[in-house]
Computed example of a mutant assay.
Amino acid sequence: MKNAAKLIVLLTLCFTIISCKSEAEKKVEIVTNNYVRFVDSVTSRNKADAKANWNKIEKAFEKKTIELNFKMDNLEDSKNLGVKMDSATKKYKSFKQALFGFAIESDTSLFIE
């Protein structure tokens, strides 16, 4: 009986450790979601307002991109979050191109595996 109880405790502990996300993964997920929300808020703005405040928007975008890339570099497996980031980046670049009417470099992937 003692061995069965120890086994159950050990299995429960292992399952808990394996199933929980690490603190770093949670932080990167939060930063990624903030990045996606930022891009969504920028692309849903009035075009005239976006043009008028573009320098601030661009600086904030660069800051969020650098922060997200830094956080992702510390994770081993961040493929799913990289896909979210790439999608948001493409959306941002398309909005920028529509606003200013010039071609943007074709490689919009900021995520490096």
Rank of each mutant, 00 (worst) to 15 (best):
D49P: 03
S87H: 04
S106D: 13
E58H: 10
K71D: 06
E67F: 03
W54A: 03
L68F: 04
T89P: 02
M85T: 05
S106K: 12
V36A: 10
N69Y: 02
F70R: 15
K56M: 10
I18W: 03
A88E: 05
S94E: 14
N80H: 02
A52D: 14
K96H: 08
L11I: 01
S78G: 15
A48Y: 01
S94C: 01
K2H: 10
K84L: 14
Y92C: 09
T65K: 14
T43V: 15
D73T: 07
I30W: 00
L81C: 04
S44T: 09
S106G: 03
L75P: 04
K90V: 11
E58V: 03
V83T: 14
C14E: 02
A52S: 13
N3S: 10
A60K: 06
K71E: 13
A5Y: 07
K79V: 13
K2F: 11
E29P: 00
Y35F: 15
V36M: 07
L7I: 12
N53C: 01
K79Y: 15
K63Y: 09
D86E: 15
K90R: 12
A98M: 07
L13M: 14
E23D: 15
A24T: 11
K47P: 13
L11E: 11
E25L: 03
L68Q: 10
M1S: 13
M1K: 07
F111D: 02
L75T: 05
Y92P: 07
A103W: 02
F102H: 02
I17H: 04
A24Q: 15
D107M: 04
K59P: 00
I17C: 07
T108V: 11
S78M: 05
N34T: 02
N46R: 06
N33F: 05
N34V: 01
K96I: 01
D73I: 00
G101E: 08
A52V: 05
C14Q: 05
K71I: 01
K47T: 13
N3E: 15
K59C: 00
N46T: 11
R45H: 05
I57W: 07
I112P: 00
S19T: 05
A88N: 06
